[in-house]
Amino acid sequence: MTTIPDRAAILREVSSVLAHELGVSPTMPIDERTRFFADLGLASIDAVVLSEALQRHFGRTLPFHDLMAEIGRRTDRDLAIGELVSFLVENLKL
């Protein structure tokens, strides 16, 4: 039986993946308001890398295509880490 982590735990997991896969090692903690592009300065391709890494990390396929499409429709085209956490919480339930 798969244990579904809570938001705080997923945030820690995301931070860990960001650190290991994208070299993000901030001096101040990443929180849910932190934005992927504007704050962390990451590039679009990093989103792809992160999506792959998170799928590997959680051991399942996740619908990042939908998430990316949703971001692409936005005016600011950015992603708050909290949204990513919500996405993961939602999809890890399945």
Binding site: A19, G23, V24, S25, P26, T34, D39, L40, G41
Partner: peptide, 10 residues
């Protein structure tokens, strides 16, 4: 401690 990698501006 690990090296700094902070795109927020450090």
């Amino acid at each position: 401690k690990p090296p700094i990698g902070d795109g927020r501006g450090v």
